[in-house]
């Protein structure tokens, strides 16, 4: 456990709170009783403070780890791409090419249009999301304790798995959503996109009937459209959040005696092995669904 005399509930809550940096309004009473004299940007000391910051709040751990892992991915692939030769590939190059080949085949299997962005986006999503998920396999207390020791603040919130933060997963999902709408309009024009929203799935071909069908279609199609990014983001978040929750619950057992501790060690190992599968599959699912949505955005529905 992180520190002395923590109740399991407090331990779990501590682990589920991000390192929030945000704006506290003037007149706000902080957890230690001090009153904020004017609007200020600061680190949240409690979960309540973090939620009271409202929208103007950044999760430094989520963004930080996301950027660090994304940079690792980018530099690693970039260096390899720079040194890559068409001759006999070396170990790292073979490994990278294996991933690229895999993504390329998967994307080509679902996406049949000319777009230079979709395949690289698939690669970025797969590797980046995989790396972010992979942070889940680091024992839950290592990095938070290390961060607490380095910062000198024992109660520092520190969540190391960006994908257990809905902001991260929904952020990516809404970017995908924005690209979907962008490519839809680019491909079909604004009118075509609107037609897609209003003339499907019910279409009679007679104007006086269509007028009544358009609102129904619009509601149905809009729900279908909006549910795509939401389900995309929440699926990843839900899987990772649940996985991390179980790691945390197992970690609580370490504080409950030697026998339970050994049992917990075995459980943690087993769950980690199982989780290797989960994180890979979730990264893959996110990538495939993104590609499918991109393909849908490019489809002109001429076969209808």
């Amino acid at each position: 456990m992180a520190s002395e005399n923590l109740t399991p509930t407090a331990y779990i809550q501590h682990h589920l709170q991000n390192l929030a940096y945000g704006k506290l309004p003037a007149g706000y009473e902080r957890a230690d009783g001090t009153i904020v004299s004017q609007d200020m940007w600061t680190l949240a000391h409690t979960s309540k403070e973090a939620s009271d910051m409202g929208f103007w709040c950044l999760h430094l751990d989520t963004l930080g780890w996301g950027i660090v892992l994304g940079t690792i991915f980018s530099l690693f692939f970039w260096r390899t791409a720079k040194k890559a030769t068409a001759g006999k590939p070396t170990g790292i190059q073979s490994f990278i090419e294996l991933i690229v080949e895999f993504i390329d085949t998967t994307v080509k299997g679902t996406f049949h249009h000319a777009n230079k962005m979709v395949a690289p986006m698939g690669l970025t999503i797969f590797v980046w999301v995989f790396l972010m998920n992979l942070m889940d396999l680091v024992p839950v207390d290592w990095l938070p304790i290390a961060a607490a020791k380095i910062s000198g603040n024992d109660h520092l919130f520190f969540k190391v798995v960006p994908t257990t933060d809905p902001n991260a997963t929904l952020g990516m999902a809404f970017t995908v959503f924005a690209l979907m709408i962008f490519f839809s309009i680019q491909k079909k024009g604004a009118i075509g996109f609107l037609k897609e929203l209003t003339l499907h799935p019910f279409h009679s071909g007679k104007i006086y009937i269509d007028i009544f069908l358009i609102p129904i279609n619009f509601v149905l199609e809009t729900i279908a459209l909006v549910s795509k990014p939401v389900s995309l983001g929440l699926r990843l978040f839900g899987n990772m959040y649940a996985g991390e929750m179980i790691f945390i619950l197992i970690a609580i057992m370490f504080g409950a005696g030697a026998i339970l501790g050994i049992f917990a060690g075995a459980l943690q190992w087993g769950w980690a092995v199982f989780h290797i599968l989960v994180i890979t599959i979730q990264a893959f699912v996110f990538m495939v669904l993104t590609t499918v949505y991109m393909a849908m955005a490019h489809d002109t529905h001429e076969d209808h």
Binding site: T62, N167, A168
Partner: peptide
């Protein structure tokens, strides 16, 4: 569990990495 500015930050990061990978 709060939806906040992090979402936009993550979007920008995501877009940046995608563009870097693409280029």
């Amino acid at each position: 569990m709060n939806i906040n500015l992090t979402l936009i930050g993550q979007s920008i990061t995501f877009l940046f990495f995608v563009l870097f990978c693409m280029k």
